[in-house]
C-alpha cells in the first residue's frame, strides 16, 4: 500500500551509529565529503574507503542498502568518466578515429569515480541511520546560528517536517484523483509529450486545490494549538550530547588529520 512507503530511506536497526546525535552525523557527512577533496592520492582514497567500511560495519545496515543510492547515479558516473578519459591530455595509450585515451585521463577518471562513489555511500550512511525527524531536528539545532543573520531556520525545519508528514498523504491523493479521472475516461499514459502534459491538468488542479485547503486547515489547527513560531518553544526530547557523541567528534578529527597528512605525504 502507498501509505507504507518510507520517506528518506531510514533503515531501522539498533547500532551505535543509529544512536549518535544527528548533529554529529551531519558534521560527519560534511567533513567526510570535504575530506575527499583534500586528499587526492590513491592512498587517501584507500584510507577514506576503509574508514567508510568501518562505519558501515558499525551501522548494522546491510551493504546492499548502502549501495542502492548508487543506482540512480550510474549514468552520471559513466558519462563523466568517459568525458575525463577522452578529454584529458597526457601520455597517449590508444588512438582511434578522432579519439585518444591517455594514462592521465584514465587515472583522473578512476579517482573521480571512486570519489563520487564514496561521497554517495558516505551520505547514505547518514540518511539510512537517521530518521527524517531527527534529521530536521539536527539541522535546526546545528544551523541555529543562522538566526543571527535572519535566516528563519526554525520555520524551515518546521516546513520540512510537515512536508515529511504530508508527502505520503499527497501521494495517495494523486492515486485517488487519477482513478477518479480515469473513471471519466481520462488517459494518463498514452500520447506524446504535449498530450501527456495536457493530460496532467485534470490531475494537478484537484491536487493543488486540495493541497491549499489542507494547508489552510493545518495552519488553523496549528494556531488553535498555540503555535506562534519558534520563540519560547520547548522540546519533548531536546537534543543532548552524550559521551559517545564527543568520542565520535574525536574520531572524526583524527580521521580528518590523517587525510590531510596523507594528502601532504604523497
Amino acid at each position: 500500500m502507498i501509505r507504507d512507503i518510507t520517506l528518506g530511506q531510514y533503515y531501522d536497526a539498533d547500532s551505535i551509529i543509529h544512536r549518535l546525535d544527528p548533529r554529529v552525523k551531519l558534521a560527519f557527512t560534511l567533513i567526510y565529503i570535504a575530506s575527499l577533496y583534500v586528499g587526492k592520492s590513491v592512498y587517501c582514497y584507500l584510507f577514506a574507503a576503509a574508514f567508510l567500511c568501518g562505519l558501515i560495519a558499525l551501522s548494522r545496515v546491510p551493504v546492499h542498502f548502502m549501495l542502492r543510492g548508487l543506482k540512480s547515479i550510474v549514468v552520471i558516473l559513466v558519462i563523466s568518466a568517459l568525458f575525463n578519459i577522452f578529454v584529458i591530455d597526457g601520455q597517449v595509450l590508444v588512438r582511434f578515429w578522432i579519439f585518444r585515451i591517455t594514462l592521465e585521463g584514465l587515472k583522473t577518471a578512476g579517482l573521480m569515480v571512486v570519489r563520487l562513489i564514496l561521497l554517495i555511500v558516505g551520505s547514505s550512511v547518514m540518511t539510512l541511520t537517521t530518521t527524517p525527524n531527527d534529521l530536521t531536528d539536527g539541522l535546526e539545532r546545528s544551523l541555529g546560528f543562522l538566526k543571527v543573520i535572519h535566516v528563519p531556520i526554525h520555520e524551515i525545519s518546521m516546513m520540512m517536517s510537515i512536508a515529511l508528514r504530508f508527502i505520503p498523504i499527497l501521494v495517495e491523493e494523486v492515486n485517488k484523483i487519477m482513478k477518479a479521472q480515469m473513471a471519466r475516461g481520462a488517459d494518463f499514459d498514452g500520447g506524446g509529450l504535449i498530450k501527456k502534459a495536457k493530460a496532467m491538468v485534470p490531475m494537478l488542479i484537484p491536487l493543488f486545490v486540495s493541497s491549499f485547503r489542507r494547508a489552510a486547515d493545518l495552519a488553523l489547527a496549528m494556531e488553535a494549538r498555540c503555535y506562534h513560531g519558534g520563540e519560547g518553544r520547548t522540546k519533548m526530547y531536546p537534543l543532548k550530547y552524550k559521551k559517545e557523541d564527543f568520542l565520535a567528534y574525536l574520531v572524526l578529527f583524527v580521521y580528518l588529520g590523517c587525510m590531510i597528512a596523507l594528502g601532504r605525504l604523497t
Binding site: K176, K179, A183, P206, V209, S210
Partner: peptide, 16 residues
C-alpha cells in the same frame, strides 16, 4: 468505463 461509471467518495478529487 463508459458503461460502468464510478463516482468516488470525494467530489473534490475530480472537479477541475
Amino acid at each position: 468505463r463508459q458503461k460502468v461509471g464510478i463516482s468516488f467518495q470525494y467530489p473534490d478529487n475530480q472537479l477541475f
